[in-house]
Design a protein around this nucleic acid. Sequence first.
DNA 1: TTGAGTAGTCATATTTTTCTGACTTATTGT
DNA 2: ACAATAAGTCAGAAAAATATGACTACTCAA
Lengths: 103, 103
Amino acid sequence: MTTQKEELIAESCPIEGLLKMLSGKWKPQIFQLAQEQPVRFNRLLRQLPEANKQSIAVALKELEEAGLLVKNVVQLKPLHIEYVLSEKGILVIPIFRQLEGLV
Amino acid sequence: MTTQKEELIAESCPIEGLLKMLSGKWKPQIFQLAQEQPVRFNRLLRQLPEANKQSIAVALKELEEAGLLVKNVVQLKPLHIEYVLSEKGILVIPIFRQLEGLV
DNA sequence: TTGAGTAGTCATATTTTTCTGACTTATTGT
DNA sequence: ACAATAAGTCAGAAAAATATGACTACTCAA
């Protein structure tokens, strides 16, 4: 739950909110993997063997809430739920490439 | 080498390190303020009245370590220690402006 | 019917980050 | 001499993030 304090701070500093899109454990890695192919819960558990269910579930939820990923149900039995990059997510990629460039 | 459809990416993720430049409490705000004028410890305590000494000290140290700020001793008595944007810090600004633009 | 795959949730630890208040060392002003 | 400002440091407490292991609910193949 967001406190009053956090809201005031977020309003006063745009960068802070932006960084929260991808800050949090495994979120950068998941965002990376999503650039190659849609990501799925159980596959991520295998791709990131040191991650745990909980963190991956939280990361997927927050990446979706941040508008970087879109959740999508694939009609296979059993149902597959995949997360693909949103339009916004795609726009973010070249910007992070620039940041990588100046390190 | 086996042809693995599900590739393991446990270790390297360039974005992750980049985000750490500015993730941490008060670091985005301090970076913002540093774009206006050099920042100083005690002045930050007044500019960010909800922050505490410890966090500001840590933030300044880490922003310096990340190469975004440069520490500089001003020969006033008592000595003033100010932190100014580095070249790299200046290069980061327009990139974050782009990120702000797509929200 | 049993076992394995799908995608999670939940309560409880453990770990990491942040906060609090006392303390330091040096200089200036009254 | 004493209070105020500079720039911090430190230990311990509180809060937040992350990890662990058990559990749910559905489908498929043997």
